[in-house]
Design a protein around this nucleic acid. Structure first.
Length: 1100
RNA sequence: GGGCGUGUAGCUCAGUUGGUUAGAGCGUUGCCCUGAUAAGGCAGAGGUCGAUGGUUCGAGUCCAUCCACGCCCA
């Protein structure tokens, strides 16, 4: 090694890999070279030709929270796929989106301003409130940018889109206008849960987020339980001196009672209460229940009838407030009569149900079916208006008691009790919700169903079942979409209504149209939030004034419109064609929880507006749970801080960990290697599993290249004429790896990427490098072509694997590319980053599947041999005379005839000779089983008998079958493929068998073999001592052994002594007789084959 | 209550159109090579495949019912 070496272009890698630091350096490199920006905005290839677009839509997250693992996972998926397609020569625009509107930010601001409910907000002022929302909504964007960037996700924060942008909102108006023009928008009522404390209706999603509680009896999880009044009241019939008993848990809805409902087909009884003489109607089973509980005394039955016999009977209003609704203007009976309704049950109450159409979904439906009006004397804050006498101005829940008191005074109460039942509560205030009918704006989705379903069939879903199952079912049962909200901070619905004629409405399609109609100067509007448009009015041609309705959009409408709105479609002339050409998107990805959210609204709007799906491919990821299988909870601290995990183990490892899981196929994932993993140990494990193997191979290459001064050339990155079987083998394996990987990327099956990568790393480290080590050890000699090929092949494989994995592990692969390709000056212009290189083509890697099978066979034999050694407790240091490989097929045996192969096996297994044989009859017992796969269909019911007969064949019969290839049992002729032979090593022999291959170890010890083994045992102990002394590889030593017998004999053998000296870099070996005192600090004493030895060494 | 999914080794998960002896990683136990990597290699133990019933010559796989869990919806 004294000859002058050429300068190596490689940097000496640190022996300790510090991934987080390495990633920081790469981040700096990306910043310095605007690498990310170039990736995001490059639309042409190096030769100037255009890159076809790969269209990606980013779903907007709410800007009011901090990123959590779900976002990191989705972000990783949204990064890998675009990176891959960019490497495949496409241009990929990746604009980050922000969902700025909606209840999350409004609630946050309400809390911060100390406001409670809509009344407070309106007192505070909508302009001021919206200003606060605008100011507060982007508070976390800096944090998002930091975390997203640190994760290595390339996405454009400069050219982002916000749903509160003027241009975005104008496009939302355009979308709505198109729907309006197509007749897809209508106004209606829907009974909705309202949080009176917030003064706002809640979505079902928000209701579900409310406090939950387990029912103590049924153990079922449900709404929080609460105690309510349980009131049974009597309604006096107008056509008979009798009463109808009805039950309610919401006395405050009684002033709005407009009808009573019975089930037409169930039985009712007319009874006289013995004590009071009162005559009443109700369902008999319920009556029994009241009596059982002692709430009603003895009764006598006067009549029995069906519910339908009661339908139509009039009764007197319970309270007088809406008594004028008794008749229609034409004098026919309208309200206060009995109606039939099949939803009425006999589970509780009286079987006669009080109906207040404004305050219950069922009540509303029954009311609609019977032409009843909707009477709602309550506002969104739950306060009675002035139509209900002494209760006016009272909060509804506070009115329960006075209402009951009045009914008691009027002798209208049959029974008063309390009930504890699950009841929905507000997710923010924990106050009970109330249900009331609200005017809302709907989009007709039901009429689009067939088209929605047809378009869904054009989408490739990963996993497939979300598309056909969850999403498909949802589309088939799609209901009209309530897209208005009674809130403040959102895109206002662009509808202006004539205050003299509610049916006269104008829908605005653009800002220009509004300015023109309202007589405003063109360009005078710069913002479309409520404070700027609510005051805009203009006179209606036939009298009256157009004023804007109060509602704003459901923010899902906005995010569903992002394909158009983010490009200010159709107002931005420059982008109009771009938007139209790029529908549908190639790819989107979000979590399973978006099935009814963004996926749905994108699909509905795209189908309604353009008649096509919004996206072609979608990856649906599952939920990330804490290690304990519960939801991640800040309060419970049951998961590690993402920032800390990244700082400890690096973003690449986290990315690889997340992606190496069925969570990218919509299944839930527990974040942790076990229940107790609260530090991200699972990610550390991924470093070891997925990153260190590649790093180790890189470290090996550079270590030797530096020592040798080997320098790669551009040719080394292309195909070579290779001779060494190892080189041809790893080349073939890399080709297979690329084929597999490309297939997975193209199919959006990200969970399969890491497993393929691990396999190629194993091939590289545990076979190619391990078996080929000696090729790199040889003395430096430019004429040593084989050594050059060894370097070049390893080099090319490493660079290629790094490039293929660049989308998954963008940092580490960038590091490898910089060190291996850029530092030596081999990067072609325009490819200063690994992410600018073309994704490696599989077909330039020469496949040799026969060779792959051969190597697999070798590895199998080695595995069997090592297994035998272990079973026999003969360690690999002890040479054995012979390994015999037995296989019935000569072509299989031929694999091992090559002397080079035999040398490999001898080295791996430490045997003196490799032999082959075709006859294993002395070694193994044959046993046979019927091949069910081939015979099952043919034989059917006879299968069992044949199988038993095959199993019963004796050794002679089986050997005959082996020779002749056919056998007859139970009258059936069976061929080679019909019988499966198994070989079991005969007991007492050192034989192992696996899948046709049998190996035999000759464990006979001769004195010569024994001494050779002892010499190696001594060598190992000297090496151990060297390590104890922390001696460098080049330091020479003198070793003293104190031993006798066979050990001394082994040392006396000149060949063995020379071997020991060379292996341990010893200048001299001294042997002293047992009993002699040994000098030196480190004396190693040990027993080898029951002989004592002591060893010491000194530096030469 | 409905829809979709999940249930396989101590833990995390593979398991193809039904086919013979159900696999991997971690952990555990044992062993081991080493002039790249002990953050390594090899091997062993560990399974009523959630339960029951059915279809079939044959079921982890298909069907039915039930149980448990998750998500979504009502």
């Amino acid at each position: 090694m004294s000859a002058p070496k050429p300068a190596s272009p490689f940097l000496r890698p640190n022996s300790q890999l510090d991934l987080p630091r390495l990633e920081q350096e790469i981040l700096q490199f990306w910043r310095d070279g605007d690498i990310e920006g170039k990736s995001l905005r490059t639309t042409t290839r190096a030769d100037g030709s255009g890159r076809p677009a790969f269209v990606f839509y980013d779903g907007p997250p709410f800007a009011t929270g901090l990123p959590h693992y779900g976002h990191l996972l989705a972000g990783t998926i949204k990064d890998i796929v675009p990176r891959f397609w960019f490497m495949r020569g496409r241009s990929v625009e990746r604009r980050f989106g922000w969902d700025c509107h909606g209840l999350p930010i409004e609630s946050l601001v309400e809390n911060e301003l100390g406001l409670h409910g809509k009344a407070d907000i309106e007192r505070f002022g909508v302009p001021q409130f919206n200003a606060a929302c605008r100011a507060g909504v982007l508070r976390f964007t800096g944090e998002w940018e930091k975390v997203v960037g640190r994760m290595g996700r390339w996405v454009d924060f400069r050219d982002d889109y916000k749903t509160m942008d003027f241009t975005f909102m104008e496009s939302v108006w355009w979308c709505f206008g198109q729907l309006w023009d197509k007749g897809l928008i209508y106004e209606g009522y829907r009974v909705q849960p309202v949080s009176p404390a917030l003064g706002t209706p809640l979505s079902n999603f928000e209701v579900a987020q409310g406090p939950q509680e387990r029912d103590p009896v049924t153990r079922k999880e449900g709404h929080k339980r609460r105690q309510d009044p349980s009131l049974t009241v009597r309604f006096r019939l107008e056509d008979e001196d009798a009463n109808l008993w009805a039950w309610t848990t919401t006395p405050w809805t009684l002033p709005s009672n407009l009808a009573l409902a019975v089930h037409p087909d169930i039985d009712y009884v007319k009874v006289r209460v013995v004590d009071t003489g009162e005559v009443a109607y109700l369902e008999p089973g319920r009556l029994a229940d009241y009596q059982q509980r002692g709430r009603v005394g003895a009764t006598e039955e006067l009549a029995r009838l069906k519910g339908k016999d009661l339908v139509g009977r009039p009764y007197a209003p319970l309270l007088p407030f809406f008594a004028d609704l008794r008749e229609r203007p034409d004098g026919t009976r309208w309200c206060f009569k009995v109606l039939g309704a099949t939803y009425v049950s006999t589970d509780s109450g009286t079987g006669i149900v009080h109906q207040a159409p404004a305050f219950g979904e069922d009540d509303y439906q029954v009311g609609q079916a019977n032409g009843l009006p909707v009477v709602c004397p309550v506002n969104l804050s739950g306060i009675f208006d002035d139509r209900v006498g002494e209760f006016s101005g009272t909060f509804v829940k506070d009115a329960d008691k006075p209402i009951v008191d009045r009914l008691k005074r009027e002798h209208k109460v049959v029974d008063q009790d309390t009930i504890v039942h699950p009841y929905p509560h507000c997710y923010r205030t924990e106050q009970p919700l109330i249900y009331m009918a609200l005017s809302t704006w709907f989009m007709r989705v039901e009429t689009l169903r067939d088209e929605l379903v047809a378009n869904n069939k054009k989408i490739q879903w990963v996993p497939e079942h979300v598309g056909s199952g969850r999403f498909g079912n949802w589309l088939e049962n799609a209901r009209d979409w309530n897209l208005s909200r009674n809130r403040y901070w959102g895109t206002p619905l662009p509808v202006w209504r004539n205050d003299r004629d509610p049916a006269d409405m104008v829908c605005i399609h653009s800002v220009a149209e509004l300015e023109r109609l309202a007589g405003l100067a063109a360009g005078s509007l710069a913002d479309l939030h409520r404070e700027n448009v609510d005051g805009i009015t203009w006179p209606a041609p036939g009298g009256g004034t157009y004023r804007r309705i109060a509602e704003v959009f459901d923010c899902w409408f906005e995010s569903g419109s992002m394909p158009y709105s983010q490009n200010h479609y159709p107002f931005d002339a420059d982008k109009k064609a771009y938007v139209e050409d790029n529908l549908p998107a190639d790819f989107i990805a979000e979590g399973l929880d978006q099935t009814r959210g963004w996926f749905y609204t994108l699909h509905v709007l795209s189908t309604a507006l353009f008649g096509r799906p919004a996206f072609k491919n979608v990856i649906v990821n599952g939920l990330i749970l804490a290690a304990d299988g519960k939801k991640m909870s800040k309060r419970l601290k049951n998961y590690p801080d993402p920032a800390k995990v990244i700082d400890s183990f690096g973003a690449d490892a986290l990315r690889a960990y997340l992606i190496n899981s069925a969570v990218v196929r919509g299944e839930p994932m527990k974040f942790g290697k076990d229940v107790n993993d609260l530090t991200g140990e699972c990610v550390k494990e991924t470093v070891r599993l997925a990153i260190l193997p590649l790093w180790s191979a890189y470290y090996f290459l550079t270590t030797y290249a530096l020592a040798d001064g080997w320098t790669p050339t551009a040719d080394d990155l292309g195909p070579q004429a290779l001779e060494h079987p190892l080189d041809r083998w790893i080349t073939s394996r890399v080709g297979g790896f690329l084929t597999n990987l490309t297939r997975e990327y193209e199919a959006y099956e990200l969970s399969n990427l890491v497993p393929h990568f691990l396999e190629i790393c194993d091939d590289l480290n545990n076979w190619y490098i391990r078996r080929g080590r000696r090729r790199y050890w040889r003395a430096n000699n430019p004429a040593d072509v084989d050594k050059q090929r060894a370097y070049a092949t390893l080099y090319r494989a490493l660079v290629t694997i790094a490039r293929a994995m660049a989308p998954v592990m963008p940092f580490f692969t960038e590091h490898l590319y910089q060190r291996l390709v850029v530092d030596p000056g081999l990067a072609v212009p325009g490819e200063e980053s690994v992410h600018f290189t073309r994704f490696p083509e599989a077909d330039v890697w020469a496949r040799d599947e026969a060779l792959e099978r051969e190597v697999a066979a070798q590895r199998q034999v080695v595995g069997l041999g090592l297994g035998l050694r272990e079973r026999e407790r003969i360690n690999v240091r002890r040479p054995l005379a012979r390994l015999t490989i037995v296989h019935e097929r000569p072509e299989e045996l031929a694999r091992f005839a090559d002397p080079a192969v035999q040398e490999e096996l001898k080295g791996e297994l430490n045997v003196e000779e490799i032999a082959a044989s075709a006859d294993d009859s002395a070694l193994v017992e044959l046993s046979a089983k019927a091949n069910f796969k081939t015979l099952g269909k043919r034989l059917g019911g006879k299968m069992k008998a044949v199988a038993a007969a095959v199993q019963a064949l004796d050794q002679a019969a089986l050997r005959r079958f082996l020779a002749e290839g056919r056998v007859e049992v139970e009258g059936e002729a069976l061929g080679v493929d019909d019988v499966l032979l198994t070989r079991t090593p005969r007991p007492g022999l050192v034989v192992a068998h696996e899948a046709g291959v049998t190996v035999v170890l000759d464990t006979t010890q001769t004195p010569a073999l024994r001494r050779k083994g002892l010499a190696r045992e001594l060598t190992k102990r000297v090496q151990d001592l060297r390590r104890d002394h922390e001696l460098d590889m080049n330091e020479r030593i003198v070793v003293t052994f104190r031993c006798g017998g066979e050990l001394a004999a082994a040392l006396a053998d000149a060949a063995h002594a020379a071997e020991i000296r060379s292996e341990t870099r010893a200048d001299a070996l001294q042997v002293v007789a047992p009993g002699t005192e040994l000098a030196g600090d480190h004396v190693l004493e040990d027993t080898i084959d029951e002989e004592q030895v002591a060893i010491t060494l000194t530096k030469a």
